[in-house]
């Protein structure tokens, strides 16, 4: 059974304008799914539908086999949500917020105390637990929201930009916590973010959405294959054989399309045999950013990021 199954999901707020236009995808348990798209692309609407607080216009969505429209209360027991649009109570302390939401989830006093203490320690908020949330910094507010989302030990965690506004240490801490939840506890993570580098580091599955349409869905490798992404061998050298002149990018710099490691090795050996001098060489692959823009623009994109030194 998939943790999340979405089939032809459509949502219209006004006539003729679809916030979601028949999107379909499924996420296995324990995956960290990066849901990537610009503002207004339909990410928040999808999260709200999957949590049963908005009704789809058409199509179906299942969370652990349960229809989100049929039993939203049970869905809320299974899911934890941390989004920019769902905040904590500013006039209550961090501890009071956790206590309140813990009780709303039907946890016992002991469970709330133990879970809250553990989460507050993990998220470096224990010292500030008795301060009102309005006195918290942006990063602290984000972390208390995360603690709130994790309090009832959800099986699916919806996160919206969990690390934006956090200092590097806290961001790393949150990232490690999310990875640990997915790997050790099988929690499925549904991550909405604009930070492509962050998504690339943490996600195991990706979905690209634009104006309510799912442009691409799959693992990084599947998406690369779908776009027929090219790997290049970039080298710097002298006396490179004339057959490589069409690939010359700049003075002494060549960018040669290759099919993989064997191809790269053969090209280099060929150049050396023909008296060429190679000072520097590296393979250039598509990064998530290249892939993202390729899908968003519907075209191939120039390579810029990820590289493996030869």
């Amino acid at each position: 059974m998939h943790a999340i199954e979405v089939c032809n999901l459509k949502k219209s707020y006004t006539q003729g304008e679809n916030a979601l236009d028949s999107i379909s995808f499924h996420i296995p348990q324990g995956a960290i799914f990066g849901f990537l798209g610009p503002n207004g692309s339909g990410k928040t609407t999808t999260v709200r539908i999957l949590n049963g607080i908005l009704s789809p216009t058409q199509g179906s969505a299942l969370v652990y086999g349960q229809k989100v429209t049929a039993n939203s209360q049970e869905i809320h027991r299974l899911c934890g949500v941390m989004t920019e649009t769902a905040a904590s109570y500013e006039n209550l302390t961090g501890w009071e917020n956790l206590d309140f939401f813990g009780q709303m989830h039907g946890l016992s006093k002991t469970e709330i105390k133990n879970q809250s203490e553990q989460l507050l320690y993990s998220l470096d908020l224990y010292e500030s637990k008795d301060k009102k949330v309005k006195a918290y910094s942006t990063g602290m507010k984000k972390r208390i929201s995360l603690a709130r989302a994790l309090l009832h030990r959800p099986k699916i965690l919806f996160l919206d930009e969990p690390t934006s506004g956090l200092d590097p240490e806290s961001a790393q801490n949150v990232t490690q916590m999310v990875q640990k939840l997915a790997i050790e506890h099988g929690v499925t993570v549904f991550l909405c973010t604009h930070q492509l580098k962050y998504a690339e580091d943490i996600c195991t599955l990706y979905g690209f959405i634009h104006k309510g349409n799912m442009l691409g869905f799959g693992t990084f490798q599947q998406l690369l294959q779908e776009k027929n992404s090219t790997i290049y061998l970039e080298l710097r050298g002298d006396s490179i054989p004339p057959s490589f002149t069409p690939y010359q990018n700049a003075n002494k710099i060549y960018k040669i399309p290759i099919t993989g490691d064997t191809d790269a090795s053969q090209i280099l050996q060929g150049i050396l045999k023909q008296g060429g001098q190679v000072y520097e060489a590296k393979q250039i692959h598509w990064g998530l950013e290249d892939l993202y823009f390729a899908y968003q623009r519907g075209v191939s994109h120039e390579i810029s990021t990820k590289s493996n030194d030869l």
């Binding site: 949590n51 607080i53 939203s72 209360q73 049970e74 809320h76 027991r77 899911c79 949500v81 989004t83 920019e84 649009t85 769902a86 905040a87 904590s88 109570y89 500013e90 939401f101 709303m104 989830h105 039907g106 709130r148």
Partner: peptide, 14 residues
Amino acid sequence: ERKTLESLLYTPMS
């Protein structure tokens, strides 16, 4: 206004 209503909607209360 304080965006806490949505947090409440995510709790198991109808």
